[in-house]
Simulated scan of single mutants.
Amino acid sequence: MIRVADLPVTHPGRRLLSKRTPFFVAPTEPRCSYCLYVPTTWTPEAELSVMVAVHGTGRSVGELREGFIPFAERHNVIVVTPLFPVGIDDPDDVHDYKVVDAHGIRFDLVVLDILEQVRFRWNARVDTVLLCGHSGGGQFAHRFLYLHPDRVAAVAVSAPGGVTLLDDSLAWPDGTGDTQQRFGIAVDPGAVARVPVLLVIGGDDDGRADLAAMGEPGHSRPERLDRLAESLTRHGTATQQVVVPGVGHSAAGTRPPIVDFFTGLLTGNA
């Protein structure tokens, strides 16, 4: 695998691997892929930080990347956007990545392998990353936090339709009672509590119709987010909650608080 630093400055590969990159196959799971935005300040010596942004059910990866480009340029952060495609081993499946493992794929490990490739190719700092996700991506993001709190500097969770509580009396994905058997990882609430978390939702994002159509009548996205906030707070996590007035179920609409949250952490003004 070619590192960007191995290419002469005038080589066309430098242009291909800078700013908006093409999609790359995930190194250990070729059915998944990822693309990046590499800011114009990148140099081989820079060792830039990384933000991972996880898509929702619609897989709007290009739009997701575009939305974080101003943040990437302003704060010299590489944006990594994985793509977990619809229909892996089930032509109708759209949800499996949200619960982290399915059909023999550990989507959390796919992300860790992607980060290792990003570290090598772009000389990036990936020991801990900023992590965010909207809707299904928000489901994945907080579950990834539970399993790998040592790899996450901060997490922003936007409008998830399902949540996992820090509750050992419940099996995954409702709770964390069987993670040792399922993942070989015992979730440590104390380690999770060391990671600051933003929970954000649009003020007009009720979600009852969507959840009822999926067999969960009587539930709403705000109710799910409140349950997650209560669970995290009870175990000591520094949790911020933001409701964005006039916004529905929109990744773009909930992005400004995420940008503000990460900006505060990067600039020491959180």
Rank of each mutant, 00 (worst) to 15 (best):
V80C: 02
I2E: 04
Y34N: 03
G236P: 12
V163C: 08
G246K: 06
L228S: 04
D6Y: 07
G177I: 11
G62T: 11
G177S: 08
P22V: 12
A156D: 02
A72K: 06
V157N: 05
L115A: 07
P256G: 05
T41W: 06
G13I: 10
D210C: 12
F183Q: 03
V94W: 05
F107T: 11
L266C: 07
V247K: 05
D113R: 14
H103C: 11
P85W: 09
A238W: 11
T254F: 04
R208Q: 14
V4S: 02
K98C: 10
T237Y: 02
D168H: 12
S18F: 03
F23A: 11
T179M: 14
E29K: 04
E29W: 08
G218V: 07
Q180L: 15
D113Q: 15
L166I: 09
P91T: 12
D178L: 13
G215H: 00
G13W: 08
G268W: 02
T237P: 10
E29D: 12
F261Q: 02
R208I: 14
I69N: 00
I105E: 07
V118G: 04
V187I: 14
R194G: 15
D92K: 07
G104V: 12
L147H: 06
P256R: 00
S250I: 11
P44W: 05
D101I: 10
H148F: 15
P8L: 11
C35H: 11
V129W: 01
D205C: 09
A124S: 09
R119T: 10
F84R: 05
V195K: 00
L147V: 07
V243K: 06
F140N: 03
T263M: 02
P39I: 05
V259Q: 10
V152G: 06
V126W: 00
